[in-house]
Simulated scan of single mutants.
Amino acid sequence: MLNTYLQGLAVGLSLIIAIGAQNAFVLKQGLKKQHVFWVCFACALSDSLLILMGVSGFSAVLQHYPQIIQFAQWGGALFLFWYGLQHALQALKAESTMQLSANSESRLMQILLMCMALTWLNPHVYLDTVILLGSISTQFTDKALFAAGAVSASWLFFFTLGYGARVLIPVFENPKAWQFLDGIIAVIMWAIAISLVFDF
């Protein structure tokens, strides 16, 4: 039983640890110390739902209705291009973005909506969590325990990334570091958007 759980944990971590749109967003929110708990919670909860959908057999639905992934493909590409453009513009600014805006509390819903879009409009999320994890889970007698391990990986990773980002805050006291991060995030977003359109 423990082996099944650990394998779910290992597979979950291996799929989630790659740098992507969602992880870059969590990292930046962690550096800004802006609604970190809710961002991590939203990402982990979304991943958990997707994993449970995959293990429960929803992958068969996606295979019969590929339009769902096609919608996420094009919608995600447009969204990621726009999101990358926002970071590119930030990278061109000279001032630091470390300081939180005065209305940061009122922006919680906006931040959560952004987080949801980065998660649910990314077709790679469906391929990794729903289809791939769902397929792997069929190899185990206790699929629920495998799913529990994969779900644990998501909660562990996102909260570690969100709160662990604070270790890097001294580095980002330099506005140039923020410009570099925004530039890197812009490139990542555009690269993912291009891959969705041409290589998907």
Rank of each mutant, 00 (worst) to 15 (best):
W74D: 10
G75T: 09
G75Q: 02
G76Q: 01
G76Y: 01
L78Y: 09
F79L: 05
F79R: 04
F79Y: 14
L80F: 12
W82F: 13
Y83S: 04
L85I: 13
Q86T: 09
Q86H: 14
H87K: 10
A88V: 09
L89F: 11
L89A: 08
Q90M: 12
L92K: 15
L92P: 05
K93S: 13
A94E: 12
S96P: 10
T97Y: 14
M98T: 12
M98K: 13
Q99C: 08
S101Y: 11
S101P: 06
A102Q: 11
A102C: 07
N103P: 05
S104H: 14
E105T: 15
E105D: 12
E105Y: 15
E105K: 15
S106A: 14
S106W: 15
S106Q: 14
R107N: 15
L108W: 08
M109E: 05
M109K: 12
Q110F: 12
Q110L: 09
Q110V: 14
I111Q: 02
I111S: 05
L112C: 07
L112E: 05
M114F: 12
M114Q: 15
M116F: 15
A117P: 04
L118Q: 00
L118G: 00
T119A: 01
T119C: 06
W120F: 11
W120D: 01
L121F: 04
N122M: 05
N122S: 06
N122Y: 06
P123M: 04
P123V: 07
H124F: 04
H124I: 01
T129N: 02
V130G: 00
I131V: 10
I131K: 07
L132G: 03
G134A: 05
S135D: 10
I136R: 03
S137C: 07
S137E: 00
Q139D: 07
F140N: 00
F140L: 00
T141D: 11
K143R: 14
K143S: 09
K143V: 15
L145T: 10
L145I: 12
F146D: 01
A147Q: 01
A148Q: 02
